[in-house]
Design a protein around this nucleic acid. Structure first.
Lengths: 141, 141
DNA sequence: AGTACAATGATACAATTATACAATGAGACA
DNA sequence: TGTCTCATTGTATAATTGTATCATTGTACT
């Protein structure tokens, strides 16, 4: 899975796991029907107790995003309706942004510095065609 | 730990604890990654309320010397020398930014949307005093 | 005396971990 | 085929850890 968590952020691990998995599903990195890692294997990878992973899975299950089945495993559910999906997408994007700003702040970055480095990278990316507008996006691979 | 405190010195216990632990880390007696005693066990040893130890730990945490994690314990962090620190900081910030933009793009966010949500969150944060310049007041709790 | 404030303690709480448990499925074997 | 056993899966509950909030104590200053 290669989820990256921050043990110092003050955000509970189980919530971080929820967000990371939501991101991956919302972005299509994990597709419906796919099996998520078992609570124990993911816990081992994250160096965390498996109950913490189980708690994250339970939240995702209650949201209807995944389906956990005792003795079988946990699986990604079918794609939610567009409006829900859009809602999740926006939430995830907001969480991403907040995490980014929090991390930057803890690094001691000033607002100006963050602004500058964002401008730099965005400019760099526009040259390479990333982050383009969905309206004019003929580039399918 | 065998910290020796002076209850009659007039120096607050929590400050004495901070100093003793700082000494031990600086002298290499405690190495990065090591787990410190729990607030309760150390408090028991020092015959002190565990909140006092927790206060010392919190100060050390804010200084970046240790990392306290609810439910897990407190661990000694590695302390990079100041010279390389700044270089590392910039690199990390750059990597952080790149990862953020990558994730946002994978979510299907347009440049405009990213720009907008960043503006929103920054504005929101400025009201709550985050990402402020280091010149400002120490923000007394 | 009285007040204000810092240090410490008491209590309730939240996150994580430890341990035991129940459901499922695969293989052995009669 | 049936069912036994056992490893693997998620679940439930209690113990452990740090956190938040308020009460108490002591001390300095009017």
């Amino acid at each position: 899975m290669n989820l990256e968590l921050d043990f110092r952020s003050g955000i509970p691990i189980y919530l971080q796991v929820v967000e990371r998995i939501q991101e991956r599903i919302a972005s299509g990195l994990i597709t419906p029907g796919a099996q998520l890692p078992t609570v124990r294997s993911l816990a081992l990878e994250l160096r965390v107790n498996f109950n913490t992973v189980a708690r994250a899975y339970r939240i995702l299950d209650e949201t209807g995003i995944i389906s956990t089945q005792q003795g079988r495993g946990t699986y990604v559910m079918s794609i939610p309706p567009p409006e829900v999906s859009e809602q999740i997408r926006q939430n995830v994007l907001k969480a991403l942004t907040q995490r980014y700003l929090t991390d930057a702040e803890r690094l001691g970055a000033s607002l100006e510095e963050v602004d500058q480095i964002l401008k730099d990278q965005v400019a760099h990316w526009q040259q390479t065609g990333h982050l383009s507008n969905p309206e004019h996006e003929p580039d399918h691979e």
